[in-house]
Every structure is written in structure tokens, then in C-alpha cells.
Design a protein around this nucleic acid. Structure first.
Length: 665
DNA sequence: GTTCTAGAAC
DNA sequence: GTTCTAGAAC
């Protein structure tokens, strides 16, 4: 009886937190004033002052327990699997507790960066990357893992409270079991919070009390950026062509579907990328897809093909893909050759186990997202965090359950498969970056100095959304966008407008940094403006060689929606399905549209161009020729199709219209 | 910039 | 009931 009383109240406390979260300090503080015997098992120093192994920690913990001591397990313990063996130390008379040090990632990183001579030797900038990576696979502990008590600390006050709780604990005392201090998962509330912040932020004049919320917003952003992983990781899905290998799906049809689905999903996944991967250089499917994507002017930076082993893209191909797709079988089992066998092999038994938790089988057209456990070699060697299994239709007559050449059904299922796959990827992207990255690139200001567009309260006014940066990106790197770029020189890039508002509609982009729109143009840009104009005229001439009846106007929007000065070269038929609303129409036919010839003249004479008000975009819908008004877009369009009236006097003058001499204006 | 959709206009 | 727009979301 004495014996059991003596042993009754030992505790194993697992500290849970990344480097810099204060685990060692926590242990030291408790041990300094504690009334019970403690032993601290620190993996960072267990090996004669150097880092050791988990096994060494377990061994030391066991022997400390035998000596009657309570034990702190001072290692990160961030995921369930890492914790499981320590939880098993518990038993009769030995409780296992968890203390979670859930401090802001930023705090942990800066602490571990600053610290010198830290026992774990985690110093310098590398610390940030390490902390980042660790946080990505973090799993918060639950009581059902085997803890009798879990305590969450989110700030210094919480930590102090927890330290006190354990310091005061006498040899025979016990603590109440249960889960203490846990905040309900912030992941759900944050998007809402962000919406609120957005609104607050959108009112520049809005007063006083939002200081707190702005500070919170900043904190959230920072933490979030850290969670995203090192800043330069772009979410990337590598996927094999589904069903075209073993399942013998027609390549021509499959490539159409891949391109169609990629085009559909690219706009939805933010800045993320989709990469079609095949092992062989001569791959027919890759070349088909490449050709079709280029035909459709799909951004080749965000959707492209890649030759390589999908399980070694980073180590062997230098392409970091955080998510890969597996064209699997309905049993979701290893084997069968090809991609499925390769991925299961490279991922080890971990993948099968992790898959089993989510699904046992898969129907054609469906996909299942499997997060890889931290021990998985694919995660550690290649940085792959998720595998998405996807099952396509089977067109192989020699295999059971094939569709016997029914391509109506086959195409439908293949489409469904890519939809499921891309939606799965979308969910990963959204999970890991709850809010889109804000524009945080530096820009060159008027004075030529570097400014951060977020923080400068100066006239670096505009914040550009990701979509609004597309032209800028192309202007800066035309060579990376060869499938959309028609020509480029040192100063300009010519592209087809992605949503042409007329039969012919190209953009001449200025390549100069800091020229975002007409408002930024000054006298020193005159030569550039003239070059843009001349290049525009050259394209007009080319188009008129194909169709001499085309009439063009060259000009700028007073207030552009997209960053980077661009000259519209647009035929005056406005015969396009992409012209859909009043804003579209008025932006090309009201005085919101500033003719290039006038801009040149104004910059020459007054040093800058006049810009018109955005209110003009809301005006009534009038024919660009006869100026008759129309109640809605469809009626306007049908009128414009047949209107042969002369153009208004104003646009007839000063070469604002560019037409072949024989064309009646 | 586009897409999506509620609800206004017809 | 259908067509169309305007505004929000992205």
C-alpha cells in the first residue's frame, strides 16, 4: 500500500511546440521551484550535449520514471505519431499530460533566429525555414490520444499560468484531467474575420477604433505567410495524364479534356500551378496538351508540361510540387505498374495507411485527397504534402469493367475525374493559404527608390489584386509567356487580349516598371508612347492585310483595371462574345477611352495626359457610329452589327480611326 | 479583369 | 417564365 501510494502521482508532461516556443524555459522554470522531483528529457542535448534520437529520449524517460521522478519531454512533439510512444509511458500511477505552446509562428521564429548557442544549434535564418516546415505538419493533441490532461497556451500569460500550475504541484498532488484553454479552431472563423478586415481596410477615412483590428490583421497576415511555407513556394499540382496509359483512353480526346479542365480551374486556384507530368520525352500526350494549351493562350507559367518521374520532381527535376496526383486503381492499392506503383513505392507504407483512413475504394471519376504523415519519405525528400488519388474511366477492352469504347460515357467520366482532382487540389490550396496573399512586391516609386506597396502611406496608392498583376508579369517576363506573346522588344510586349472585345484586339504593353497606367505617364515617357503607337499601327496594318474592311482605334483606358500601361489596339466592330456589359462598352466608346494620338499630343504639350472619370462607364449605351441609345447590351449589339452610319465627327478627325483609304468611315 | 447569381425588368 | 444587369466574390 505504501508502495503504490508512492508511485501514484508521477506525471509525464509532453511539451508541444516548435523551436523557439519556449519549451526548455518552461521546464527550467518549473524545475527551479517545484516541490516534486522532475527530470527533463531534452532531445536537443540528450546525446552528451548534442542532439540525440527519439529512442534515447524514451530510454531516459523510462529510467527517470523508475527513479520515481516526473518527466518533461522537451522536444517538438508536433504530430500525433511523434507523440504516440511517449504517451505509452503512461500507466498505473503515471499520468501523461500535454502542454501546448501555441505561440505565434513569428514569435517562435524570431526567438530561434536570435538565440545563439541554443542547445539545438538551430540558428540564423535557417530557423525560419525549419519552424515553417514543422508547423505545416502540426497536429494539435487531443485527449483521446491518451493524455489525461491537455493545456493550451497561446501567449505569455497562458504560459505563466501553466508554469505556476506545475510548479505548485507537490509530490502527491494531482491535476484535474481534461482539456484546458483550447481556443476553438481559428481556421473556421478567420475567413470571416478577414472579410471584416477587408471592409475596414477599404474605408481609408474610417476613423479611430480600427487600430486594434489593423494590428490584428497584420499579425494574422504574418502568421499566415509563415504557414504558407517559405515565401517562394507556389502551390503546385503535378498530375499524370489520367486513363491514357493502362486504361487506353484516346489521346486526342484526353488532351482536349485536360486542357479544357486546366483552363477552367486555373483562375480558381489563385497563383497556384498545374503541371502535367510524363516519364518519357517522346510523350504524345504531353505534346498534344502543350500544343492545345498554347492554342488557347493558357498562361504557360501556371499550366505546363514536364518530363520526369512524378515521385522525384524536386530532387531530380528541380520542380517543387507540393501536391501530386496518383492515377490509381479502384482498390486504392499499390501495384499495377506505372504511376500508381511508383507513387506507392516512393511513399512507403505510410501512404497506404493514410489512404485507408480516408477511403477503401474509389469510383471512376472520383478523387480523394490524402495528407502525407510527417514520416513519409515523399514529404521529407520531395516536399510533397498531399497525394490526391484519382480514378479515370477504363477503355481497355482487355481489362474487366471497361466501357467497351463508349466515349460518351468515357469523356464524361474523365472530365469528372479532372474536376474531382482539381477540386481536391483547390481544397489543399485553400486550406493552407486561407487568405490570398496580398500584393507585397516592391515597386519603384517616382523618385526611383524602393517602396513597399503595403506600408508606404505615400501615394503608392493602389493595391493590385493578383489578377490585376497579370499584364505586369508578362511585361516583365515576356520570354516566360511565349504562348501569349505576339512579339516583344526591350521596351514593349504585344499580346492578344485574353478576352478580346472585338474581332481584333491586341495590347501593347510598356515594359517599364512603375508605369502602371495613363496617370503615371510623363514627358520622359514620350518616346516609349510613340513606340507603342507605332507598334500598334504595325499590327493594324497586319490585320488589315487579312481583312481590309477592319477599322481600328488605338488608345488607353483612363483608369485601367490591370497594372502596367497598355495600349489597346481594337477593331471597331465590337463583335465579340467577351463584350458583355456596360463597362466594357463604355470603356471603349466613351471619352473614358483616350486615343493614343491625343495622349501623345497632351504629353508633348502639357507633360501629362488627361484622364476621364470612371463615372463615364456608367453612362447610357450609345452606338459608336450613330450615337443612338439602346436599353441593354443585347439590343445594342444587334444594332451595332448592322449600323453603317458615319462615325461621329470627333473620332473622324486627327487619325483617331485607322482604316484603309478605300474604307467608308 | 471574369464569374456567379439574386432579383429587377420585362 | 425568361432575360438582363449590377454587385459581390475572386
Amino acid at each position: 500500500m505504501e508502495d503504490s501510494a508512492e508511485k501514484t502521482n508521477q506525471i509525464v508532461v509532453l511539451l508541444i511546440g516548435p523551436p523557439g516556443s519556449g519549451k526548455s524555459t518552461f521546464c527550467d522554470t518549473v524545475m527551479r521551484s517545484s516541490l516534486r522531483p522532475w527530470s527533463r528529457v531534452c532531445q536537443d542535448i540528450i546525446n552528451n550535449g548534442k542532439a540525440g534520437t527519439k529512442a534515447q529520449c524514451l530510454k531516459m524517460a523510462t529510467s527517470s520514471l523508475k527513479e520515481g521522478k516526473s518527466v518533461f519531454i522537451d522536444r517538438c512533439n508536433l504530430d500525433r505519431e511523434q507523440r504516440s510512444e511517449f504517451v505509452k509511458l503512461g500507466g498505473p500511477g503515471i499520468e501523461v499530460h500535454a502542454v501546448v505552446l501555441e505561440l505565434p509562428a513569428q514569435v517562435c521564429i524570431s526567438r530561434s533566429v536570435k538565440r545563439t548557442g541554443h542547445e539545438g544549434n538551430l540558428q540564423g535564418g535557417r530557423a525560419a525555414a525549419v519552424v515553417n516546415r514543422m508547423l505545416q505538419s502540426k497536429e494539435l493533441p487531443k485527449v483521446n490520444e491518451g493524455f489525461s490532461r491537455v493545456m493550451f497556451c497561446y501567449n505569455d500569460a497562458d504560459v505563466e499560468n501553466a508554469v505556476n500550475t506545475y510548479s505548485k504541484l507537490g509530490p502527491m498532488d494531482t491535476l484535474p484531467s481534461g482539456c484546458f484553454g483550447e481556443k476553438k479552431s481559428d481556421t473556421k472563423s478567420q475567413p470571416g474575420i478577414m472579410k471584416f478586415f477587408k471592409k475596414v481596410n477599404a474605408l481609408p477615412g474610417s476613423s479611430s477604433s480600427n487600430e486594434g483590428t489593423n494590428a490584428m490583421r497584420k499579425a494574422n497576415e504574418k502568421t499566415e505567410n509563415f504557414r504558407l511555407g517559405s515565401a517562394d513556394i507556389v502551390h503546385t499540382l503535378a498530375f499524370p495524364s489520367v486513363s491514357t496509359a493502362d486504361f487506353q483512353f484516346d489521346l486526342e480526346k484526353a488532351s482536349d479534356i485536360i486542357v479544357e479542365k486546366a483552363e477552367e480551374f486555373l483562375p480558381k486556384v489563385g497563383t497556384a500551378r498545374l503541371v502535367l507530368v510524363d516519364l518519357s520525352h517522346g510523350s504524345k500526350i504531353l505534346s498534344l496538351v502543350k500544343a492545345k494549351a498554347s492554342q488557347k493562350n493558357i498562361d504557360s507559367e501556371r499550366f505546363f508540361t514536364f518530363v520526369g518521374d512524378i515521385t522525384k520532381l524536386r530532387s531530380e527535376g528541380g520542380l517543387h510540387c507540393n501536391v501530386i496526383a496518383n492515377a490509381t486503381n479502384w482498390r486504392l492499392k499499390p501495384g499495377g505498374g506505372g504511376v500508381n506503383a511508383a507513387i506507392f513505392k516512393a511513399a512507403g507504407p505510410d501512404l497506404e495507411t493514410a489512404t485507408r483512413v480516408r477511403a477503401n475504394t474509389l469510383l471512376p471519376g472520383k478523387a480523394v485527397v490524402v495528407p502525407l504523415p510527417s514520416t513519409c519519405p515523399l514529404l521529407n525528400a520531395e516536399g510533397i504534402t498531399h497525394v490526391i488519388h484519382v480514378l479515370g474511366p477504363n477503355m481497355n477492352p482487355n481489362r474487366p469493367d471497361n466501357l467497351s469504347n463508349d466515349y460518351t460515357k468515357g469523356c464524361k467520366t474523365l472530365r469528372e475525374a479532372y474536376t474531382s482532382l482539381f477540386e481536391g487540389f483547390l481544397s489543399v490550396v485553400q486550406d493552407q493559404s486561407k487568405f490570398p496573399k496580398r500584393s507585397n512586391q516592391t515597386a519603384v516609386s517616382d523618385s526611383g527608390s524602393l517602396e513597399d506597396t503595403r506600408d508606404s502611406g505615400k501615394k503608392m496608392s493602389k493595391e493590385w489584386s493578383t489578377w490585376a498583376l497579370a499584364l505586369h508579369t508578362i511585361a516583365m517576363h515576356p520570354e516566360r509567356h511565349e504562348n501569349v506573346v505576339l512579339e516583344f522588344s526591350d521596351n514593349i510586349v504585344v499580346i492578344n487580349d485574353q478576352y478580346p472585345k472585338a474581332r481584333k484586339h491586341v495590347l501593347v504593353l510598356a515594359r517599364q516598371e512603375s508605369l502602371d497606367g495613363l496617370e503615371d505617364v510623363r514627358k520622359e515617357n514620350l518616346q516609349l508612347l510613340q513606340e507603342m503607337h507605332n507598334v500598334g499601327l504595325k499590327w493594324v496594318d497586319r490585320f488589315q492585310n487579312e481583312d481590309a474592311s477592319l477599322i481600328f482605334r488605338l488608345g488607353y483606358h483612363s483608369v485601367p483595371s490591370m497594372r502596367q500601361l497598355h495600349l489597346h489596339v481594337i477593331s471597331q466592330d465590337f463583335d465579340s462574345d467577351s463584350l458583355k456589359n456596360k463597362k466594357h462598352w463604355n470603356s471603349f466608346t466613351s471619352s473614358f477611352f483616350r486615343d493614343s494620338v491625343d495622349v501623345l499630343e497632351e504629353v508633348k504639350s502639357q507633360g501629362k495626359a488627361n484622364v476621364a472619370s470612371e463615372d463615364l462607364l456608367k453612362g447610357e449605351l450609345r452606338c459608336n457610329r450613330c450615337r443612338s441609345a439602346h436599353p441593354n447590351i443585347p439590343k445594342l449589339k444587334s444594332h451595332v452589327r448592322s449600323c453603317r452610319s458615319q462615325f461621329p465627327e470627333h473620332v473622324l478627325q486627327n487619325s483617331r480611326l485607322v482604316a484603309r483609304p478605300e474604307t467608308k468611315l
